[in-house]
Amino acid sequence: MQESINIAQKSPSRSARFKRFWRRVKIPLMFMAPFWIVFLAFFIIPICYAVYESLYKTVRSGLGLGPPSVVFAGFENYAQILHDTNFSTSLLRMLLFGIVQVPIMLVVALILALLMDSAVVRFKTFFRLSFFVPYAIPGIVAALLWGFLYDPGVSPVVALIHNLGLHNFNFLGSNSILWSMANIVTWEWTGYNMIIIFAGLQAIPQELYEASRVDGSTGLDVVRYIKIPLVAPAIVLTAIFSIIGTLQIFSEPSILRTISSNVTSSFTPNYYVYNVAFVNNNFQYSAALAVVLAIVTFVFSFGFLRLTQRQAGLE
């Protein structure tokens, strides 16, 4: 403090001021550099590039066999998205998916977390770890594993169900495939969400429990009036993660498409973006789709946050 007052009184030259400024920010900058460089290279620049690409389009001429030209298209790609039923259908599909799957997953995660936190369960560490293991398995591997269990040609589960007399049962049918994916997602993410909620439960001060016991509350009362209200912010957080995750589902459709003809190229928004870019070779339109998907995700997650701001502890 002393030093900085002295400096201010001396009214130094520009370069000296810069030198001092540099000396002050040099070390913080150095510590932040690894983050910012990677963040810029892998987030900011690609996002800017996607927005830039989305304003262009590839134009071919005549028979379309010569080299194409890339021209500025303004918001043409975005206008096209408004009429793109593939995209809107995939968004609606994910909405349905989210409305069903996210509550189921979070309720299961909450129940597991409460069990882990209760006094009655033994071998807590073992269970905590085994619930968490699916999250540690890469999404592609999980989809492959479940794919083997769904594929009628190789799955022992399907063979068993067929032997029980349900010959038309099919995990990969046009009506069941979405829920087969929901099952994979639930399996993969419940443990992760449980850990977040469990951490919230662990942070609840013991005094509250003692006080409620003095007031004569039962175990269920504790859950209802103390535990759940106090972990509400954690539940809101897991819900937001799940909403974002739902809109980004990719590995499940891409793996299950290889074993089922009921997964279209636009089954989920994210998978559609991928197919438009890399299979149909239309990078510009795909970039526009990606930007719109990001905005939709933003709207959904922040909309949810606003709806639940009291529970999230933001009010």
């Binding site: 379309g64 066999l65 046009s174 003809s261 009921n262 279209t264 299979v279 070779n281």
Partner: peptide, 22 residues
């Protein structure tokens, strides 16, 4: 044709739907 990438993708989607009865 000159756009077989799109044709094949759309064929996949449309045939898949038809085979499952849609």
């Amino acid at each position: 044709g000159p756009t077989m990438d799109q044709v094949f993708t759309d064929m996949n989607d449309a045939l898949g739907a038809a085979v499952s009865g849609n």
